[in-house]
Simulated assay, not measured.
Amino acid sequence: MTKGNADIAERAAWGRARAATVMALVFVAAQAGSFRDELPLNRPETLHLSAWIVWAIALLFFLAWGGGLLRGARMRAVLNDETTIDHRRRAMALGFWGALGTAFAVYVLSFFDTITVREGVRLVITFAIALALLRFGTLERRALKDG
């Protein structure tokens, strides 16, 4: 790989690390005010829920492939080295544990307040994705700083 390509790959890796953190924070912040939507759903609520679904799927794709689907095979190989694969695995593991912890918290909360299935599922998915993105971004930035 030429020095120019290495610089491009490093900039892309830094961008990916920063994007993971920012996306996690924005994702959670955007969801904060949207819980407790009452049925029947009106047009703005339906649009908001649809956007949440699309955003959640896009963030899962980002976590799974690191944003490299649109890059060439050689660049993807550089961006998805063994360290990044390990970071992604560790981030997904934290997301799993975060999902279990959030599900448990929702279960406990249901004894004290009415919580719909839809609200519970959105909480679990939102926090699982956010934790995984934050962990991935943190691990990637630390590795790039040290390396």
Rank of each mutant, 00 (worst) to 15 (best):
E10G: 02
R11N: 14
R11P: 04
R11A: 15
R11C: 11
A12T: 09
A13Q: 06
A13K: 04
A13E: 07
A13H: 07
W14G: 05
W14P: 02
G15K: 03
G15N: 06
G15Y: 05
A17M: 04
R18M: 14
A19N: 04
A19K: 00
A19M: 05
A20E: 05
A20P: 03
T21W: 01
T21H: 06
A24Y: 00
A24F: 00
L25A: 06
V26F: 01
V26A: 05
A29S: 10
A30P: 01
Q31I: 03
A32P: 05
G33R: 06
G33D: 11
S34V: 14
F35V: 12
R36V: 13
R36I: 10
E38M: 13
E38C: 06
L39V: 14
L39C: 04
P40Q: 05
L41S: 08
L41T: 12
N42L: 05
N42D: 15
P44L: 00
E45L: 07
E45P: 01
T46F: 14
L47H: 11
L47M: 14
H48S: 12
L49E: 14
L49C: 07
L49H: 11
S50L: 14
S50V: 10
W52I: 04
I53L: 15
V54Q: 05
A56S: 07
A56T: 02
A58V: 15
A58W: 12
L59S: 01
L60C: 15
L60S: 11
F61V: 15
F62C: 02
L63Y: 01
L63S: 00
L63I: 04
G67D: 02
L70A: 14
L70Y: 13
R71Y: 14
R71G: 11
G72F: 01
A73F: 08
R74A: 15
R74H: 14
M75Q: 13
R76D: 03
R76S: 06
R76I: 09
A77S: 10
V78I: 13
L79C: 08
L79N: 07
N80W: 12
N80Y: 08
D81H: 07
D81W: 10
E82L: 03
I85N: 13
I85S: 15
D86G: 05
D86I: 02
D86H: 08
R88V: 06
R89T: 13
R89I: 08
R90Q: 15
R90N: 13
A91E: 08
M92S: 10
M92P: 02
M92R: 12
A93Y: 11
A93R: 15
L94T: 12
G95A: 10
G95H: 08
F96C: 09
W97A: 09
L100W: 08
G101P: 07
G101R: 07
T102K: 01
F104K: 11
A105V: 10
A105Y: 10
Y107A: 10
V108N: 02
V108I: 07
V108S: 01
S110E: 07
F111T: 07
F112Q: 14
F112T: 12
D113H: 14
D113C: 03
T114F: 08
T114R: 11
T114A: 12
T116R: 03
V117N: 06
V117C: 09
R118K: 11
G120C: 03
G120E: 03
V121Y: 08
V121A: 15
R122P: 03
L123I: 10
L123E: 04
L123N: 04
V124L: 05
I125S: 02
T126P: 00
T126C: 01
T126S: 01
T126R: 00
T126K: 00
F127A: 02
F127P: 01
